[in-house]
Design a protein around this nucleic acid. Structure first.
Lengths: 104, 104
DNA sequence: TCCTTTAATCGTATATTTACGATGAACGAT
DNA sequence: ATCGTTCATCGTAAATATACGATTAAAGGA
């Protein structure tokens, strides 16, 4: 039978899965779109545009921050969010690389 | 404050999130790679190449089938899996469209 | 017919995700 | 100093995801 289960997943595979996870909720997709439509955006604006409670939006923002796709900068009592364009580009490249490797 | 929370997520946003969800586990990324390396693959081969139990791999295959990225065809007692290339391409296009819209 | 192989499904345990109200911390304005 | 605003975090409930052993169904071969 000789199963070779010793090989775990590669760092690349785990990283890509992590990026995909960050994109795996419609609210987070929408947040990225909102942030792109203005090049800077208060947290409250995002909350107002999503059908979710403020605490929930904050969690989604945290997840996007965790993988580095967005950044938040404190501005007085408000927080100004923006896309991390270089990280976005890296994410896109990683995904395209996978598709290229796999099929297209 | 005039929050407009009436707008839910679009079908596009939900579909894209769903695709991302299917890609959000390293085992599923690896399964896609395995299926691309041979253009056809028995379920047992995939199990042998992953550090996971057969039942778990079967669940991951089910998730990939759910979104249509792969297909399984019964061949006697075995099941022959393969990529759904057109669906893969659609998934890639949807992702690229998002990145293009958002930043790059 | 019975046995083996193959892979899905069941049952189940645990972890993670998602969601929300409540609370707290930081700041500006009064 | 106090108040209102803003947003993160806490606490928590419910749903979903992940993992595995055991069982089942389907097929081929003895």
């Amino acid at each position: 039978m000789a199963k070779n289960k010793s090989d775990e997943f590669t760092a690349d595979e785990m990283e890509l899965a992590d990026i995909a996870k960050a994109l795996s909720h419609p609210a987070r997709i929408k947040i990225l779109k909102i942030l792109s439509s203005r090049n800077v955006c208060m947290c409250g604006d995002i909350v107002a545009l999503l059908p979710l409670a403020q605490a929930t939006v904050s969690q989604h923002l945290k997840e996007l921050k965790r993988v580095g796709l967005i950044e938040g900068e404190i501005e007085g009592p408000k927080v100004c969010y923006c896309l991390n364009n270089s990280k976005m580009e890296k994410a896109k490249d990683s995904l395209i690389k996978l598709f290229k490797k796999v099929c297209c």
